[in-house]
Amino acid sequence: MNIFRLAGDLAHVFAIIILLLKIWKTRSCAGISGKSQILFALVYLTRYLDLFTTYVSLYNSVMKVLFLASSGATVYLMYVKFRATYDRNHDSFRIEFLLVPCLLLSLLINHEFTVMEVLWTFSIYLESVAILPQLFMVSKTGEAESITSHYLFALGSYRALYLLNWVYRYIVESHYDLIAIFAGIVQTILYCDFFYLYITKVLKGKKLQLPA
């Protein structure tokens, strides 16, 4: 474990807590993409299949359970409890355009052609594009609540910090994982224009307005 990965995991947990609090406190999921949340739930389900077969550490197991439980709870809150506030019209990204390419790519490019490895690779590729429905929704509505932009900033920072973690591990442990690095770079790049808007607008107290 290194400071970059720990900071990344904490930013990830922080993002999930912000989102759950936003939905629970406002009893509304307006402005949140349910499709992205479904994709995140799928990412954790396909990545953490080894939860019961491989024990890495207490930290690792606790975080996996936390991510699985929180993503499930978020999907439940959005599609069941507060379904009346779910903005279906603006959440119109076709996620099959993400699922199919990620599945095909994970069958073609992976570390080992086994079920667990292909599913892990699928989850890595899917995670890199899972935020697209959310960013698409923000661009369609043209704005985002500040709490939603804090959520996106924390979520985008998590994988950016993981990139630093992989640089650290390459230097210190001389190991690297090209699949994770490639997907992580794509994932972080997708947030770049949001990061710019967040830093130039939201941090100055303005609302996040995307140029329509």
Binding site: D9, H12, S57, N60, Y170, A180
Partner: peptide
């Protein structure tokens, strides 16, 4: 340097 999957990462 060795290319491998990091099994200890989330």
């Amino acid at each position: 340097a060795e290319e491998q999957r990091f099994k200890d990462e989330l």
